[in-house]
Each structure stands twice: as C-alpha cells, then as structure tokens.
Amino acid sequence: MIPASFEYYRPKDMAGVIAILQEHGDEARVLAGGHSLIPMMKLRMAEVPHLIDMQDVGGLSDIEIGPDRVRIGAMVTQSDLIDDAALAKVAPILREAALQIADPQVRYMGTVGGNVANGDPGNDMPGLMQCLDATFVLIGPDGERAVAARDFYEAAYMTAREDEEVLTAVTIPLPKGGYAYEKQKRKIGDYATAAAAVQISKDQNGCSAASIAMTNLSDTPIFSEAAGAALVGTSVDDAALKAAVAAMLNDIDPTEDNRGPIAFKKYVAGVILRRAIERAWSRA
C-alpha cells in the first residue's frame, strides 16, 4: 500500500498548474481532496509520476449563488456543501446527496471538483450533476471552456477533460420543484449498490418536468432522459412510476460485483428510483 515514487508540486496559481500539465501531459495529475486518487496510487493502480497539489491555488473554494445559477468552486468540499445554509435553500438536493457520501472525515477532505472530474462511476456527484444539468468549467492552455455534465463522461475514468486541462468549477441552473437523492449502500463509506437523483416539477396538469440520473449502474453515470419523459404529463401514478422505472432499466448496464449480481442490481435500481420519485414528488 505504498505508491511508486512521484514528484510533488504545489504551485501558487493556475498558470503554474497548467504549465506543469503541459510539460508532463498524462503523466501529471492534479490533487484536490485525494480520496480517489491517493488510494489508487497506493494500490499502484494509478501511476502518477507528477502530482500537482491544488491547495495553494486560490479562488477555487467559493460557493456563489446567482439569480439563475449556482457556481461551486472545484475545491469546495462535501462538508462545505453540507454546511452552506443558503445553498441548502436554493438547491437542497446537493446537501441531501452530500450527506450520503462516505463519512464525515472523508467529507472534510473530498471535493466536488475531484468527485466529478475523476470519472469514477461509483462517485455520487457525477450522476447528481447530470440530473441538475450542470456545466463543468475547464481551464487549459487555450483558456476556459464549458462542458455539460451530460456530455462529460465517456467511460470509467475517461472524461472529456483533456490532459492539459483542470476542472475549476461546476455551475448549476437553480433547480426547481421537488428533489430526492436516494442511495442504497452496504455500509457507511461504500459506493452505491444503486442511487437515483431526481428533480421534479408540477403544475395544474401534473408533472411538468422531471430529470433523473442513476449512479454506479454503468461505467458512467446514467442520465435517463426517457425515465424523466415517462413522468411528464402524468399524475405520477403507479403506471407512470412503472414506465419511468422501465425506461431507466433500459438505459443502465450494471455489472456483477461483491454488491450482488445484475438481476439484483436492476431490481434495486427500480426500487430506489421509485422511492426517489415518490419522495421528490411529495416535495414538488
């Protein structure tokens, strides 16, 4: 459980970070909270000859609530998310989800940026950000660009981020309606057996909009557009719930692991989604 040797850098600004990334390409990685990267380095599953510690780079730890969007700096920790009362008011699903990530000690260190950028299908924030239609802000040698969370994930640990880019912030349109983050796990600290993020709105005709994303049920987070669509225009009755679950099951592709076989995961995914929709709908 000892990583291979590596060079450690601690630049003071983003230009310094990008310069190191340009020099070393995919041999360099940035380090935020370290709760995904460092275990992989210790297991020697990730070899990182050049490790760039981000903690002296300022300006990445703010939560800004604007009229239309929330902007969360990449170095904001899960604990910061939980503690921000104003954020809990405008986007309560972030707090509900963050409270289900790992344990308090990990949440003091683990960051939003690291969670979404690493591309680990077990992480909770990627699916949540897809549900919320978040945008990821990336900075590289040629300046900033924005990538939709729904377009960011390509495969496990493979994302739209280029080797020379750093994810600096997440911006989220202010969520509307009811919400729920529902997660089944074997114990505190575990990844999800299945997790569902649901944001749902209602008008006089019933459900007016619904957004659904699932976690740890494929090699990427799964934004299930069809599952959301199955609810729109309905009164979110049993038939609509069944249709949404069926649509979601069509989109996910779980694999067997120690949490259980595929049939179990699919069944539980359906149960978890149904519960998430019911809870979100009750809050809409």
């Binding site: 344990d103 074997r186 114990k187 505190i188 600290g189 575990d190 990844y191 120690n258």
Partner: peptide
C-alpha cells in the same frame, strides 16, 4: 470470498464488511 481461480474478492475494507457506529 474467493472466485473460482482462487482470487480473494474481499481483500480491502471496501468489500470486507467492518461495521461502523452507523450500522
């Protein structure tokens, strides 16, 4: 737990269940 090839499937505390105060 072992697979058919004799690989240990529960070699870390991610998969080897050690309850916390929560459980």
């Amino acid at each position: 737990a072992y697979d058919d090839m004799g690989n240990v499937k529960t070699g870390t505390l991610m998969d080897f269940f050690l309850p916390t105060a929560w459980e």
